[in-house]
Design a protein around this nucleic acid. Structure first.
Length: 226
DNA sequence: GCATTAACCACCG
DNA sequence: CGGTGGTTAATGC
């Protein structure tokens, strides 16, 4: 069972549940600590649980046929991932790796499905979450490979700060340029260059080990026609 | 030309 | 001090 404090910070969706269901969710939630570089799960694993980031940073990636690692997206504090495999009760279709020491909340699949069957507010949240991910996917196949590094990085950052998928009201995040590079699928040097470009354009501000978003809307559209 | 890895090193917290 | 990030050199696509 998760502490009340941790539960309320990570499970923002629980605010809309009735008290009984909220307690059910909390009782069936556990915490797992992942050291930097550790995999939460691999593609094809069947892990019947849903994952929320209490603190830290996760990268969702797949291995292409060529053997190349393709980063799909990052999950930061209060972001939840893995509902698709739990709903369909099927193996995972991606790898999840911790980019730094990360603490994870796990909700077991049985409780997840019980909430789906019994809680309209939970379903409302799920529809929103899935709709947002669908938008991500469409953007990815639409122009994913055609963008230059600056635009690809801008998109990665925008996803990380997506207000639906990662509802921190903070526009600042402690993240190194190396981590941003890993998330964006590029080297630290290239990420650094792209970040300075975006800073010059006034979309974000760089600090030591930290970025501050100044214009999330323009970041998410960067590289597409205005 | 542009991106990558590896290395070096100064700076920040 | 450890982590971060600016820079450079060698190499690849």
């Amino acid at each position: 069972m998760l502490s009340e404090a941790k539960f309320m910070t990570v499970a923002h969706w629980a605010k809309d549940l009735n008290e009984e269901d909220r307690e059910l969710a909390r009782r069936n939630m556990t915490e797992k600590l992942l050291p930097k570089g550790a995999y939460l799960l691999h593609e094809h694993d069947h892990v019947d649980a849903w994952f929320g980031v209490i603190d830290g940073l996760l990268k969702i990636s797949v291995v292409a046929e060529s053997g190349e690692m393709v980063s799909l997206t990052g999950i930061s504090r209060s972001g939840w991932v893995g509902e698709g495999s739990v709903i369909k009760n099927e193996p995972r279709r991606y790898d999840v790796v911790a980019l730094r020491d990360t603490s994870i909340a796990l909700l077991n699949g049985r409780t997840f499905r019980w909430l789906m069957d019994n809680s309209p507010p939970f379903n409302k949240f799920l529809v929103r979450q899935l709709n947002e991910r669908l938008g991500q996917f469409i953007a990815f196949v639409g122009y994913g490979r055609l963008l230059d590094p600056t635009a690809r990085l801008a998109r990665s950052i925008a996803w990380l700060f997506n207000p639906v998928l990662s509802p921190n009201d903070q526009l600042q995040l402690g993240i190194s340029q190396e981590e941003i590079g890993l998330l964006s699928g590029m080297s630290r040097q290239t990420a650094s260059k792209a970040l300075r470009q975006l800073q010059t354009e006034g979309l974000l501000r760089l600090q030591h080990g930290r970025i501050e978003i100044l214009d999330l809307e323009r970041l998410s559209r960067y590289g597409t026609k205005l």
